[in-house]
Design a protein around this nucleic acid. Sequence first.
DNA 1: TGATGTGAATAACTTCACAGCG
DNA 2: CGCTGTGAAGTTATTCACATCA
Lengths: 220, 220
Amino acid sequence: MKQAIPHETIKRLALYLRSLRQLSRKRVEIISSEKLTEHIHASPAQVRKDLACFGEFGTPGVGYSVKKLIAEIESILGLKEKQEVALVGIGKLGSALLAYLGFEKFGFRISALFDNNPEKIGKKISELKIEDVARIKEVLRRRKIKIAIITVPAANAQEVADRLVAAGIKVILNFAPHYLNIPKGVIINTIDMAIELQSLAYYLTHKEQSRASSTTTNLT
Amino acid sequence: MKQAIPHETIKRLALYLRSLRQLSRKRVEIISSEKLTEHIHASPAQVRKDLACFGEFGTPGVGYSVKKLIAEIESILGLKEKQEVALVGIGKLGSALLAYLGFEKFGFRISALFDNNPEKIGKKISELKIEDVARIKEVLRRRKIKIAIITVPAANAQEVADRLVAAGIKVILNFAPHYLNIPKGVIINTIDMAIELQSLAYYLTHKEQSRASSTTTNLT
DNA sequence: TGATGTGAATAACTTCACAGCG
DNA sequence: CGCTGTGAAGTTATTCACATCA
């Protein structure tokens, strides 16, 4: 019951959580695995299997308590307390992510900014001062930040990743379209928007349908 | 040899392509499946299997011609000619994507912009006029655009998706953190950055390592 | 010799189907 | 009676290992 959870399962848990929160806002108190999957690409059996990895949260013949299940999943994912996040690369994409409230809403706060452009270093965006990437180690060590988002150009991504690793970062969400070499023990997930678009282009000329899945990840 | 290619394979082809282009720039002419995987999370056998879905491109005892393989993969993915792309939602994220040269570099051109904000409609960004979302059907039909990117708030995403489908769009890259109901025959890939971050948070408290994989997709 | 292409074997994930319990 | 939890079956994807060919 406790070993080698596939990342797909973890990602689905986050999706279930989002649906559950919507249900909670609509005052729904009990939900069955079947109903829960109405707005998710997953089967009821999948939901039950995913949850079974972590315990027994439902009541046979009834379903799951929405409120309780939210609490359980938040606990599993470690979203009970706000997570501080560092953002490296304050260009257009970085700024867009900084303004994105979706993170804040779900337990994350971007609370350290870095860039290598002297024109940007020292400037403030929404109360946060942009620091020199050279100070990543110092700042993150002091503030014990464990999560970082990389939004720098591909050419600088490996250097930044090295700095983040040296600073004790444990989890990286990388938007740079580049392979990153990372030591074991650090988890990295690369979202490469150009790759996503290119792979979708395939389906314009090939009609054989693919079954449903969900946004992947370069974990290490 | 020709049926039901998994999306994972398609995505890896795009990754191979990126590596191959780098190699080409470095004047490398021949590459083995083993060398090719040095900067990709995949095994040599995986590379050969992926390619075998589409033909025999290598020379036993030698390897693959970089130039030829680039041409083959571009042909498979349908990247030989520039693809026009519509962008719906010209907020921070949409603007960031518009400015992102990664798309342009790999065969895509964002060439139609839409928003529902009267203050934005009619404005121009880099030569492109922002149109009213109500005109999606008209504009996309006329220009025969088949790919769209959604960067609107979650609350508007389904409505936008419906309009895109009605306009004959075949492929959607969706950044709105919301489930989208789409008819069969239209392919959708949702990139939900909040979900990605939440699922990564799991690994801060759970050290059991996950094996390498690559960024997923809500295909339909 | 050396790397491809590929059937066979393995591993991973998903669905099925039903026992069991509220 | 209804829905969960779960072993078993089924399906899909990955790795292995080797015959084959330049």
